[in-house]
Design a protein around this nucleic acid. Structure first.
Lengths: 278, 278
DNA sequence: TAGTGGTCTAGACCACGAC
DNA sequence: TCGTGGTCTAGACCACTAA
């Protein structure tokens, strides 16, 4: 019965695909059909339809308003920032990392990624998706994007692992990486990501994006990663009070970042630990 | 019908309370009763019971195994750290912050918080819960904890807002705050938090914990905050490549933190900015 | 085989918003 | 009043695990 295209295709996955189509098609603020209408169209019950909508609401792609309807969520706007002018040293490990290539392809940049890498949407990119593991179990999914011109076929999986991509760029293309801009935000995993990371759907995760540029400011790498929230944590130590040496920036009276305003937190990050749940 | 204690008490909230009790009582790895058994005990249908379990699974407090049962989740173990040895400067704002006191009380430290503040579980603490708003809409919930001895009654709401708590500590108690240890991890909001922050249940959020100590290393403040994931993002700029001035730490061959190992990312954060969603 | 979680249904009633 | 989302039910069938 039904229509199951591939093998195991849950109904709510089909529903999710359909909803994503509606989201793509619509503009922010547009209403999508009512739940009951969608149920009829897709041939599923309301609870099933609703679990699919739940996921998209949790990931911020849809917005529900009781008595009014369900709408395509407006683009993220009000995000605030937390880190500024810091000397953020490198992370330390406490496990053995490895990785597994999930996919490797030459793709077109497309609008979103093309904009970030500042290339034409039609530009060719080398795309690599890989699973990062710590002590053998999944820690993160990384999606790497490079302009194809910089990374021909010489970029083997071995090289990726060895970590000499930057050396390669410098020696063969005269490109010296210079800096990177990185953002970190919380999110929840979808069905696909959950399966790869081996966690339940809607589990918390950290979405980390990084854009690396060379000395001339040209983007050379765009990385989008998803870290398991139950295995990853950012810990930092902040120097407070005594305006000693080091950057003691304070723009105005408030510090929205850490715990805004109050307290004289001319903060400084660092990392942490913690125990059980709250 | 039913038993609704206070006013609006959803069934799944009652179920959640019951499950939390089981979790508290049990030890990690212990099985809890089967879903069907719990349904009978609590007088709810299985879908209702399951949505409550879903929430606790998403927050990492329960663990389901098909065909076997549902278990109390083991304590978080394998967390890795990301930032270390940094001079992370203070955040900048881009909105006007305000706050609203949700609760203020003198409480006993209890096991978990007592351990963090290094006081007896019976020690008295001043506890303050407040809602932080940006441009009038909710951004975060903060739970502040101070040893009562350091913060008598002189700590008014005004003082909290003005941000001169640290001055107060120095002038009246000879306590000079020195540093803080902070951790950031992704999580999802529960029903209660969702209501206060005005976001859907299971929405992503950042859980930030901070322990502040004075110059003698004694803890003076423990703060537990929950930031809305759709309004908060941590952005930073990393200096790469050229081993110029500044800390250029590199423990061994791998950098598990930022994008582990590979690439020669002797990272170094710095400022901020940000883009849109992915 | 029996018990567990995983998925789904068809319908009910409530609360809220717009008309 | 009507349509929307919000909650809940009672029961079905499947997939997996263990005995």
């Amino acid at each position: 019965m039904g229509s199951g295209s591939t093998s195991a295709m849950l109904k709510r996955e089909r529903v999710r695909e359909h909803l994503l189509g509606l989201i793509e098609a619509g503009r922010p603020g547009d209403a999508i059909p009512s739940e009951r209408t969608l149920c009829a169209e897709l041939g599923v019950s309301r609870p099933t339809l609703r679990t699919a909508v739940d996921e998209l609401v949790a990931t911020g792609q849809l917005l529900r308003e009781q008595g009014r309807g369900t709408f395509v969520a407006p683009a993220k706007i009000t995000q605030e920032l937390a880190a500024e002018e810091s000397a953020f040293a490198v992370p330390l490990a406490s496990g053995s990392w490895s990785s597994r290539i999930l996919e490797r392809a030459t793709i077109q940049a497309g609008a979103r990624i093309g904009r970030r890498l500042r290339v034409s949407p039609a530009a060719e990119l080398v795309y690599i998706a890989r699973l990062r593991l710590v002590d053998g179990s999944p820690m993160a999914i990384e999606h790497l994007h490079f302009p194809a011109s910089l990374v021909p076929d010489s970029l083997t999986s071995d090289e990726l692992e060895a970590g000499d991509l930057y050396d390669h760029l410098r020696e063969h293309h005269g490109v010296a990486v210079h800096q990177a801009t990185q953002s970190i935000e919380p999110t929840v995993v979808n069905e696909t990501e959950a399966a790869v990371l081996d966690v339940p759907v809607l589990s918390p995760a950290l979405l980390i994006e990084r854009l690396t540029t060379d000395t001339s400011g040209r983007p050379v790498e765009y990385v989008h990663s998803l870290y398991r929230g139950d295995r990853y944590r950012i810990v930092s130590r902040l120097a407070l009070g005594s305006p000693g040496p080091g950057p003691r920036i304070r723009s105005d009276g408030h510090h929205p970042g850490i715990p805004p305003g109050d307290f004289a937190h001319d903060g400084i990050i660092t990392s942490s630990t913690t125990g059980d749940a709250y």
